[in-house]
Design a binder for these strands. Structure first.
Lengths: 214, 214
DNA sequence: TTTTGTGAATTGCTTCACAGCA
DNA sequence: TGCTGTGAAGCAATTCACAAAA
């Protein structure tokens, strides 16, 4: 039992991949899986898989492998997605609409409970996502955070507006931000930030292409 | 000049961030910038910034810092975005629409030259993005790759369809894939893949929240 | 001075290889 | 046998700290 040892940051990132892959195996009626097989589909070594899981306790069964259901449950608990988290979305452009209609959201333990935008043409519009949400003006943000006990916010606004939105989220008490705007947000380091920048990803691919063809 | 030395993979990822931030500094009329200041806004150490840039040659000027324009040009060249790359998009749902209408695309040296979807209701529709593109059926994909000399493809289809699309892209000669579907694509390792999974990012935030509040 | 570029030291992460269990 | 968990070894990345340049 190697609990509470120092956990490499990349290991935490892989936990999500293990969970996703295990759910896929479960959908295919697999009951157990070895570290070797799990690693193979994710392009990781078997040792990597074992070590990552072992950081969080005794997961596997020697001679058998890992029981799919058991590991899924434990990973969800570790990641904190075994109970629903209320999420708030700011920005209802194409990307924002894509995000609320994305099924993976709810399935994974996250629920969008409010949507904001400052465009008067969008305010008051219904959100397709399901539970009869309406797009609200940003002024309503602090009230919504309190009412729904929101800890996570998603920023899907244009770059120039992103920092202001981040400030508003943090001031309202949000503790984590998923940012899709291509800027580095300046927030108190007690707030967790994860950023997705389309251009950055394309540039990485471009670099790999350039450096490989030589 | 420490060229061609072994370059840490994370360093390449940061190159994009340096580029983005430098463009932002240029927009604010800054001509030079020190490693300390550049690192501060990106939450990196000054030594990290210097070392990353030095992997790719002599960039800075002792006593002065880095000349913004100069470094921007050289980073673009290194990343291969100093000339336009033709990109092909598969999947014209909300996410696909968000991607084509994303301004950052063109600005960064990428241009979407064809859009595909298998939904008959979408085929033939115009793509808002600008240059009068029409959504095409997937069967047209190989021809488009050849015609436009496409090396990069973006997958924005539902998870179950993603692997098939990836296979089609690779078979057509695409060399890099940006994947938004929540699956690990199995492709030949000569093909570069970069994946963005919304659920994974939210889970990372959730984990950080859970582990911090204790 | 200020600030870079870079070997050396350090820290962090992954792989190895094997004891132990089923 | 098959497979996990884990110290030890090996590799990778970051930070330190300082000579050299402007």
């Amino acid at each position: 039992m190697a609990r509470a040892e120092h956990i490499p940051k990349p290991a935490v990132g892989r936990l999500s991949l293990y969970l996703r892959q295990l759910e896929s195996f479960r959908a295919a009626d697999r009951r157990t899986i070895s570290s070797r097989e799990l690693g193979a589909v994710l392009r990781l070594s078997d040792a990597q898989v074992r070590k990552d899981l072992a950081y969080f306790g005794q997961f596997g069964h020697p001679g058998i492998g890992y029981r799919v259901n058991e590991v899924i449950d434990r990973l969800r608990h570790i990641l904190g997605t075994d109970r629903k988290s209320n999420v708030l979305l700011v920005g209802f452009g194409h990307l924002g609409q894509a995000l609320v209609s994305f099924r993976g959201f709810m399935r994974k333990g996250f629920e969008v409970v409010a949507v904001f935008d400052n465009d008067p043409a969008k305010i008051g519009r219904g959100v397709s996502g399901g539970n009869s949400l309406l797009v609200q003006p940003l002024g309503e943000l602090p009230a919504a955070v309190r009412r729904h006990n929101v800890r996570l916010g998603v920023i899907a606004v244009p770059a120039p507006a992103a920092q202001g939105v981040a400030d508003a989220l943090v001031a309202s008490g949000v503790r984590g931000i998923l940012n899709f705007a291509p800027v580095t947000l300046q927030v108190d380091k007690s707030v967790a930030v994860s950023s997705v920048d389309l251009a950055v990803h394309l540039e990485q691919l471009s670099f790999q292409l350039v450096s490989r063809q030589r």
